[in-house]
Amino acid sequence: MLARGMSAQFSAADLHLRFGGVVALAGVSIDVERGEIFAIIGPNGAGKTSLLNAVSGLYRPQRGRITLEGRDITGLAPYRVAKLGVARSFQNIELFAGMSVLDNLMLGRHVHMRGGVLDGAVYWGRARAEEVRNREVVEDIIDFLEIEHIRKHVVGTLPYGLQKRVELGRALAVEPRLLLLDEPMAGMNLEEKEDMARFVLDINEERGVTVVLIEHDMGVVMDISSHVAVLDFGKKIAQGTPDEVRADPNVIKAYLGEESEAIRAAERAIAAEPVA
């Protein structure tokens, strides 16, 4: 375990995050190696999304440290985290609904472009060349994700599965070093899931992007990830290879216990009470 932490590209150490009385993260640590697909699993409300949000800079943890390639990024504003090469998708698709697929992906190029208001208004020379150059990058991604036929469609009008794919495209356009995916396959049919799994694998293998993936579908997790961390109640209850995790008694208990949500909610309320 120690060896993992030493060479990690990205790590979160002892993250604590609470919203009023609700504890979302209670001392979570993960270490992600360069070039791996790292899965985070856990029951509903375990704190998985909160963890990604803390990394993105959307939530500010009360305690703990997040480092990317040796650099402390804890509490950095989201746009600064993006500039350092972290891109993501959201559990409930967060696209620019009124814009075309192309424009959504072009926004992924924002950090790689320079043009300001004046350059844009004049749209000549350097600014125009920059737009065209980045459009080419975006077209490559459109080819890769096989969404050529919808490139000029307004994303708000697209079906759910395609929107998920466009959101992945926007994250790819950032050319991230670290890609955070929050349930990219949720709500998809089998075929769409397989496509998405193939894209994630290709992104990881061909583009060398480190992927942190939240996913409920255990089959997918077992198939594509090299390392798995299991969260429950804001704590990491297990980690290891997919096989190790699957056999872990804590994990089995956490998943079997899912039905008794009412009891868990009560426990959580008690846990959240300040200790006198």
Binding site: S56, L58, A82, E94, L95, F96, G98, M99, L107, V111
Partner: peptide
């Protein structure tokens, strides 16, 4: 336009 449509997503793609 991105800020109009989804300001959180705008910030995570690097828009200040």
């Amino acid at each position: 336009i991105a800020i109009r449509d989804q300001d959180v997503a705008a910030s995570v793609v690097g828009v200040d």
